Simulated assay, not measured.
Amino acid sequence: KAGNLFEKNAAPILHLSGLDVTVVKTDYEGQAKKLLELMENTDLIIIAGGDGTVQEVITGLLRRADEAVFSKTPIGFIPLGKTCTLSHTLYPESTNQVQLITNATLAILKGETVQLDVLQIKGEKEQPVFAVTGLRWGSYRDAGVKVSKYWYLGPLKTKAAHFFSTFKEWPQKRQGALMYLGPTERPPEEPEEKSSRPPLYVRIYRRLRLYWSSPPKEIPQEVAPEDWEELKLSTIELTIATRNRQLDLTRTEDFMDICIEADAVSKGQFVNRGSQKMRDPHTCPEGSQCIQASRCILQLPEGTEGSFGIDNEEHEAMPVEVKLLPRKLRFFCDPSMRGPMLRAAV
């Protein structure tokens, strides 16, 4: 279905624009990640899919040896998957999927871009995984992934999934420890300047001077100790999220939002909040502990089972370090979306 939507609604616009487009269809999970790790230079990347495809592409891109240069390639996103969280940031809301696909494709051609934060999530032995939305660990996430099993209940399937999950041990607590560093000051954005290449005689003179001059003495610099905060966790759900869903281009600090929800929740509250969480997974209910951090380490007790949801994709739960990469990737967006980003409240 996704392939047909792309061929009928996005591909004709891209080809009529005069772009030289190479379409690569993925056949299995993880293929997009491998393709991006091996891809040669390109003027732009277009992702046509959902949250899972976005995560695979940015993970493959940022694992490259030349990621510092390759990550400057602008990225277009055409929402085709079941969950397309990023579309809420980049494009106006639309209940018509064909219109949303068309608007997204036209936004790529208009050329307006916005820089998005990325989370680097690294286990002790695993290669890092990258996310543009965030990480969830808890009972709401676990119940949410089972909603489709109750399809035969129609509009009651969400409440059913959360209700039946309360039959397990209650209350359902996630325990561990969290260490974190506070927000960092956002440096001013510097415009990219393309400097002209100096004449040949200047380049020769510089090389000779560098060759004959003595190496500069390295002056050791004192590194300020990092001010880590630490707290014990006992929560029904932990969320670590970027600010991309509430993008504010005027803010002066870089940070990710950490929400530690209270573990004392009644079964009725759990079922009602579960429905809210399906609409906005990163909502932070009243009574939760909210932290702004630039980096954090999540430590789990030995033998912890279960899964994380990273950009709505399932990953084994394990101790991880989560690091914010501010303004790491540039995505095409609808020009109408930049106004609210500039007027957003800090």
Rank of each mutant, 00 (worst) to 15 (best):
L90H: 05
N244K: 09
G182E: 04
V23N: 08
S266V: 01
G76E: 01
C296S: 13
C333K: 06
D257E: 14
P155E: 06
N41A: 14
K267S: 02
T95I: 06
L208M: 05
A224T: 12
L200F: 11
Q276C: 09
T133N: 15
D248P: 09
E193N: 12
G49A: 00
L325Y: 11
P216Y: 00
F6H: 06
S148A: 14
C284N: 06
F163W: 14
T42G: 11
G18M: 04
E222D: 11
A293F: 02
R206F: 09
D263L: 08
D66M: 04
T53M: 14
L298D: 00
K328G: 06
A317L: 01
F167W: 03
S71Y: 07
E67W: 10
E56Q: 04
L106C: 10
D51L: 06
I291W: 05
G303H: 10
E313F: 00
N41Q: 13
N41M: 08
L19P: 03
K267E: 04
K34C: 07
F167M: 12
K232L: 08
S139T: 15
D51T: 09
M337H: 09
C296T: 12
Q127R: 08
F163M: 14
S234Q: 15
A161F: 00
T133K: 12
S94I: 01
P79H: 00
L109R: 03
I236H: 10
P188H: 10
R174M: 15
M337D: 09
I58K: 11
H88K: 14
I121T: 08
T26L: 05
T166D: 07
G49W: 07
G49T: 02
Q97S: 06
R295N: 13
Q127M: 01
Y180G: 11
L329W: 13
A224K: 08
D66I: 03
E286D: 13
L200T: 11
C296I: 02
A344D: 02
A143G: 10
N96H: 12
F130Y: 15
T26P: 02
Y201V: 02
L80S: 04
Q269G: 04
R243A: 00
A48D: 01
K277H: 15
H88C: 07
S214R: 15
E7K: 13
S196P: 00
R273I: 07
K159D: 10
L38E: 13
D248V: 03
D117M: 05
V23I: 08
H282V: 01
I101C: 06
R251E: 09
F332C: 05
E7I: 11
R273T: 15
P155S: 09
V147N: 01
V223P: 07
K122Y: 05
